[in-house]
Amino acid sequence: MAPSSRRLATELVLPVPESGHPVVVELGPGTGAFTGVIQELLGGRGHHLAVEINPRFASSLAERFPRVQVLNDEAAALPRLLAESRFGAADVVVSGLPWASLDRTTQRTTLDSVRRVLAPQGAFTTFSYVHATCLASARRFRRLLGSSFEEVVPGRTVWGNLPPAFVYHARRPRPRLSPATLDLLAAQVGARAAARTGMRS
């Protein structure tokens, strides 16, 4: 409905280190609502890679942010893209991807790519619109997130965003698992979430 707000961007980029030379990867930057905030935080430090599948957006971002390495490709290609850039593991992956609109296979392969490139102590952040959390695809993504990372913490709702949204903060990527094991873990995450909801009601 509208570009992501500055407040949502600030919540999303919280894991970007304030010192050192981190490797920060941005997925689905679109028109750059988060890109500019990341650049402000880095202040010329480290490396900022932005992966954008839309060639028009990618071209615009490269022109607006000359310090950002903009790659016109899909997010699932992240392991290859990072290897070709020779930056090693990512310290932070920030995602603006519309996870609830992605099919199951794309959700899984893209999230697996994120998990594979993150450093052991790395952080992954993404956001969800509040109104979309009831969608089956959004619930599926939340389960996949829980099966891919040992720690997943939802942030406070940013009511000033249009529409309102909140951020998922994920840390400690799990070792690479088979699809069957991921499905099992996702089911367990969903069962625990349902049990907690039942206890609260």
Rank of each mutant, 00 (worst) to 15 (best):
V24R: 03
L162N: 09
P179N: 11
T109K: 11
S201C: 12
L42H: 07
P98Y: 11
E74H: 13
I38R: 04
R67P: 00
V13W: 01
R108Y: 07
A119T: 05
P55K: 09
R139V: 09
G44W: 06
F65I: 01
P15V: 02
P98H: 12
R86Q: 14
P29I: 00
G96N: 04
R142S: 14
R104F: 09
R116L: 13
G43C: 03
L12N: 02
A132M: 14
A119M: 02
A89D: 09
S85K: 12
G88K: 09
A62Y: 06
L102V: 01
R116D: 13
F127R: 08
T109V: 15
T31W: 08
T125K: 03
T105R: 14
L162F: 12
R108K: 11
V153G: 04
R116T: 14
P179M: 12
F87W: 15
V94M: 02
L118Y: 07
P154Q: 04
P98D: 12
R45Y: 05
R7P: 04
A89G: 04
R86L: 08
T31M: 07
L8V: 07
G160Y: 04
L111K: 00
G30N: 03
A165G: 13
V92M: 06
A194G: 10
E63A: 12
H131W: 12
T133N: 11
E63K: 12
R192Q: 14
V92K: 02
S4A: 14
L81Y: 02
S128D: 09
L102K: 01
S147F: 01
L111Q: 00
R64G: 03
V24T: 07
W159I: 13
E151W: 11
L118T: 04
H48M: 02
D73K: 08
F34T: 13
S148A: 15
S148G: 13
